[in-house]
Amino acid sequence: MSDLNINQKVSEMLQRSEANAQQDEKTFVRPEDELREVVAPDGSIIKINPLYDYYSGERPQEDKPKNAIVEKFLNWARSESIWVLGFGTGCGSIEIPPLVTPRYDMFRFGVQMRATPRQSNAFIISGYLSVKTLKRVIRSYEQMPSPKYVIALGSCTINGGMYYDSYSTINRLDKYLPVDVYIAGCMPRPEALLAGFGELKRLIKEGKGEKANEYARNFDEYKANQKKIIKDWNMPDYNW
């Protein structure tokens, strides 16, 4: 590769990064996420922009239910098979182990834990969310396939809870993610959580579990709110 080409590439890269910087001044990029060139084993040079190469660049689309009867049947199946993402975001997650163990045994009700967001339908936000976790929560949530549901536990998700004046935790979850069901308590007992799953099942069966579409519809608004508080937004807008 001639020097000219390299110079050209470098100037292109510079332009791209400047364009990014102009888009959002607050954005700062970690060293490993910066534009870089990698030498492949065969000697060719591969240009990598980690933030845009590794992810989908599409906006989320609304998935409208199509056939009413089929959808009703599927909703029944969805309500009876809720797979919960095993992401303990806050202290409420201490009440998850009792649920999957003999005393409360939520498997009876078709609720199971799942380790990866790709296979999960329900996200339990177990209490307070620090901004640092919120960033990961957004990514996990966006990776979950639609239809997906969010269960918010405790006071912290409703209005900040006892951390209302903390510089680190958000106050209102519904500003950043669409929430299906709130369960009161600090933290809610496992029984209340099971009641929350019951309510979620009812909502899904009635066809009201369409918050994923709401997220897609109001995508710009949610994104604006998220970006307002996540100061180092070093991830792409679309995480699908």
Binding site: G90, K132, T133, R136, S166, S168
Partner: peptide, 14 residues
């Protein structure tokens, strides 16, 4: 760490 940071030490001062 810091994913569960709530700033207790600051909050208790208040």
């Amino acid at each position: 760490v810091g994913y569960l940071h709530r700033g207790f030490e600051k909050l208790i001062e208040r």
